[in-house]
Amino acid sequence: MKFIVYDIEATCWEGRPPATVQETIEIGAYQVDSYGQVGPCFSRLIKPILHPQLSHFCRRLTHIEQPDINRAKDFTRVIRDFQNWIDVDGEPYTLAAWGKFDEAQLRRDCALHRLDDYWLDPSINLKLQYRELRKLPKKRGLAAAVRHEGFEWTGAQHRALDDAENTVKVFRKLLDMWRY
């Protein structure tokens, strides 16, 4: 059994968005085995089709520049690459993300692009489980959880691979406690 600890970034706007449809623009992930050993990573930008121009707010938040998005592959190609990366050895896997947004957004993108989303199962919501494990009165954001567990944040917030790397820190510390 291996775990795919991942994070996504999506199109975003300040205030009221021009549409309620967000699209994934970046995915970052690490493979973690059942002993907590961190394996290879996956990182790709994705070119959105509904709103190909990133908002100023989104560029500022994610530090993803428009020329990089313009050169990116579309969702269908990147997700096929991601699925192949996950399943390269045929070993069973469980996807793990901080919160419910990432899985829900990937399911919306699969629907938008008329792709099956079976590969998103099984998935675990680490944010929800973290709250339960640590008996917290409310959910805790990733940066706060990283600090609470005694780790330093590495990289930039709101970059998928950096967020996934920081999620891995918390994930590994509580490896034997997650329910999946």
Rank of each mutant, 00 (worst) to 15 (best):
84 N>P: 01
105 Q>S: 12
159 R>I: 01
103 E>T: 05
124 I>S: 12
152 E>W: 00
111 A>R: 15
123 S>G: 06
109 D>Y: 07
136 L>W: 03
85 W>I: 02
102 D>Q: 10
165 E>M: 08
130 Y>S: 09
98 W>H: 03
161 L>A: 03
169 K>P: 04
111 A>M: 11
142 L>D: 03
92 P>S: 07
133 L>R: 12
126 L>P: 08
159 R>T: 04
84 N>S: 11
119 W>M: 14
115 L>I: 11
158 H>M: 02
136 L>R: 14
120 L>A: 13
148 H>I: 00
88 V>R: 14
122 P>D: 13
106 L>A: 08
166 N>A: 05
135 K>F: 06
110 C>M: 10
99 G>N: 12
160 A>S: 12
111 A>W: 13
87 D>A: 09
112 L>G: 09
150 G>S: 05
162 D>H: 13
95 L>R: 01
105 Q>Y: 05
149 E>T: 02
145 A>F: 04
149 E>P: 01
115 L>F: 09
146 V>R: 06
166 N>V: 01
132 E>Y: 13
107 R>L: 10
111 A>I: 10
159 R>Y: 00
141 G>L: 02
93 Y>A: 07
94 T>L: 08
149 E>I: 01
79 I>G: 02
131 R>P: 07
161 L>P: 06
110 C>L: 09
84 N>L: 07
118 Y>V: 06
148 H>K: 07
161 L>N: 05
122 P>M: 13
144 A>G: 06
97 A>Q: 01
133 L>V: 04
105 Q>W: 09
101 F>C: 03
164 A>G: 07
141 G>K: 08
131 R>K: 15
83 Q>A: 03
83 Q>L: 01
113 H>Y: 15
165 E>T: 14
147 R>F: 03
137 P>F: 02
86 I>S: 03
134 R>S: 10
113 H>E: 14
138 K>Y: 11
101 F>S: 12
134 R>A: 14
82 F>H: 04
162 D>Q: 04
97 A>M: 05
169 K>N: 06
114 R>L: 14
81 D>I: 01
152 E>M: 05
169 K>Q: 15
84 N>A: 10
80 R>P: 00
83 Q>S: 05
169 K>I: 07
127 K>I: 06
140 R>F: 05
83 Q>C: 13
165 E>V: 00
115 L>T: 11
124 I>M: 15
109 D>I: 11
88 V>T: 10
120 L>I: 03
81 D>C: 04
168 V>P: 01
134 R>F: 07
159 R>V: 06
102 D>P: 08
135 K>S: 14
116 D>F: 04
98 W>Y: 08
81 D>M: 10
132 E>C: 04
133 L>A: 11
118 Y>C: 12
126 L>M: 15
165 E>A: 15
94 T>G: 00
146 V>L: 00
112 L>K: 13
94 T>Y: 06
140 R>W: 11
143 A>M: 07
164 A>Q: 02
112 L>Q: 15
152 E>Q: 13
120 L>G: 13
118 Y>S: 15
88 V>M: 04
92 P>C: 03
83 Q>H: 02
128 L>W: 11
132 E>W: 12
79 I>S: 02
146 V>K: 03
114 R>D: 15
91 E>A: 05
134 R>P: 02
90 G>S: 03
87 D>Q: 14
